[in-house]
């Protein structure tokens, strides 16, 4: 593990922080970062990536929490198809998702045609080639894991704890905020960080959906490497992505470790 992950990561970080002087000696320098951020699109793309990530993670949570909540507490037969639908995207490769969404939401796609044939309305503006397209694709991809983690977190709250709160006089809102939510804080933290990592480093969806520019970082990095052939810039972009992901990843690891310790594992 160390050999496959830590070593190359450290090597890349080291590479971007050093330069070879004229006399052949290696010196410490931030040059590659300076030149990288002088690229006209390096910073805008980074902000764009972070913005898309935050928006996607927020929407994912807002969308999936009610679903997970429903799946946890519903006893109705309907929860079976709901669970299936929520998990379905997991079995669809990203590239298939992207093209399905293009067919569905794109110009002359199903939505536009259905709207037109039902209402005669022609004002459909496809979100596919806009940043919204990326968000839609990434949300679609993120739903299963988000629902799974949140449902698992909610399942760890025994019914008795909820019922005893009802019993001492808590209404639905109080049960949620005072009893349920404090107990699934870690699951929420895990889902937020996990989604952040997945979305921040996403490649296929941002490549196929959204506009030509600005680009998400995974795509931007690949473009630097394969399209333009700037290995140093690609590496710098990679290190920046790595550091941001590692920072968020630390939060994730801490959440998981805390949870284990709390359970006494």
């Amino acid at each position: 593990m160390a050999l496959l992950i830590v070593y190359p990561a450290a090597l890349s970080v080291f590479d971007t922080l050093t330069a070879t002087s004229a006399d052949g000696s290696t010196r410490f320098t931030l040059e590659s970062y300076v030149t990288f951020f002088q690229l006209p699109d390096a910073l805008p793309n980074l902000w764009f990536t972070l913005r898309i990530t935050v928006v996607t993670v927020t929407i994912l949570f807002a969308l999936c929490f009610p679903i997970a909540y429903y799946l946890r507490f519903s006893t109705s037969q309907l929860s079976v198809p709901v669970r299936f639908l929520a998990l379905f995207p997991m079995f669809v490769p990203g590239i298939v998702t992207a093209f399905a969404l293009i067919r569905f939401l794109g110009d002359n796609g199903w939505i536009e045609n259905i709207l037109f044939s039902l209402t005669g309305w022609e004002g459909w503006v496809s979100p596919i080639a806009k940043p919204q397209g990326i968000v839609i694709g990434l949300v679609w991809e993120g739903v299963p894991v988000t629902v799974l983690v949140l449902t698992a977190g909610l399942s760890q709250v025994p019914n008795h704890l909820i019922e005893s709160a009802r019993d001492v006089g808590a209404n639905g809102r109080q049960v949620f905020f005072r009893i349920i939510f404090p107990q699934i804080r870690r699951s929420v933290m895990i889902v937020l960080t996990l989604n952040f990592l997945g979305v921040f480093g996403a490649f296929t969806i941002p490549l196929l959906l959204g506009g030509a520019s600005p680009q998400m970082y995974g795509h931007y990095m690949a473009n630097r490497l394969y399209g333009i052939g700037q290995y140093t810039h690609a590496q710098t972009a990679a290190v920046i992505m790595f550091l941001i992901s590692a920072a968020v990843g630390t939060l994730y690891v801490r959440s998981v470790v805390n949870q284990r310790m709390e359970k006494g594992e």
Partner: peptide, 20 residues
């Protein structure tokens, strides 16, 4: 009357205390 408004109080078999 919903459970939170009933003049009853219950002690459950297990998992009765809120761990947080």
């Amino acid at each position: 009357i919903p459970p939170n408004k009933r003049p009853t109080a219950m002690v459950f078999q297990k998992y009765t205390l809120w761990p947080h």
